[in-house]
């Protein structure tokens, strides 16, 4: 009996506790309701970054000098379109409004920190049209590349290590960090770092679009799942 219990304990320990595990999201204890139709978005103008832009330029047959600008602006548009589909009353808070505040880091896990700009305590930010949103989705970073791993970008222990491996291109991937901001009480309701992978067959702008659509969907699902019961 005792031996069985001990084996079980060891097995559970091996599966759950003792392996390296991360918490990739964090909810505020008072996050009770996900956004429905009304939502404001901020940060998209600066968040998108394309890694391996030369490789992408070659595959997508665009000029390497303008690949970064072309792809990121395409992705931003695709992302906003997708979000507008989910949240019909989507508005935007200008990036400059949020970027005026100092950059802070937020702890998700013992080893995972995200960096971003957050509005000051006691000050509600305004939409571009002058209205005051209840909830703002702040996109901190949106990295597009191939075979990216979020540990290498967000694990405090790993980010300073040089990655010796040659870049591979099996999957089209995106890593993005965001915070759902309660603009009325000026607190982060839900923060997360997500990673999506999509196998590459023949890369085209449509693939980029579907990657972005998956990302937008993923954010929506996470916002629902993050609600504290």
């Amino acid at each position: 009996m005792f031996r069985k219990l001990a084996t079980l304990c060891i097995a559970v320990c091996a599966l759950v506790g003792c392996g390296p595990s991360y918490h990739w999201s964090k909810s505020h204890p008072l996050y009770k309701q996900p956004p429905y139709s009304a939502l404001s978005i901020s940060g998209t103008q600066n968040a998108f970054v394309l890694t391996r832009s030369k490789w992408f330029a070659k595959k997508l047959e665009i000029a390497p000098e303008s690949a970064q600008v072309q792809v990121t602006s395409f992705c931003e548009r695709a992302f906003l379109d997708e979000m507008r589909r989910a949240y019909p009353a989507l508005k935007d808070v200008p990036d400059a409004t949020i970027n005026a505040y100092p950059e802070e880091s937020q702890k998700l896990d013992d080893r995972i920190f995200i960096k971003g700009h957050f509005p000051e305590q006691g000050i509600a930010v305004k939409n571009a049209d002058g209205s005051t949103p209840a909830l703002v989705l702040i996109i901190h970073e949106f990295i597009i590349g191939t075979d990216l791993k979020r540990e290498l970008y967000y694990d405090y222990d790993l980010i300073h290590k040089e990655n010796e491996e040659k870049p591979t291109s099996k999957n089209l991937s995106a890593i993005f960090s965001y915070t759902l901001w309660d603009n009325e009480r000026q607190r982060p309701l839900f923060s997360a770092v997500e990673e999506i992978q999509q196998p590459i067959v023949k890369l085209s702008m449509d693939d980029m679009k579907s990657l972005i659509a998956t990302a937008a969907r993923k954010i929506r699902i996470s916002l629902y799942e993050g609600v504290q019961k």
Binding site: H28, P29, L30, E104, F118, E120, Q121, G122, I123, E184, R185, Q186, R187
Partner: peptide, 26 residues
């Protein structure tokens, strides 16, 4: 700045929140 935080605290104090959620950020 102090008054911004004071008003913020007024809205954010809650039995469910411990001190790290009431942290002064400025």
């Amino acid at each position: 700045v102090a008054m911004h935080y004071a008003r913020w605290l007024q809205k954010n104090m809650d039995p469910a929140l411990d001190e790290e959620y009431l942290h002064i950020r400025h």
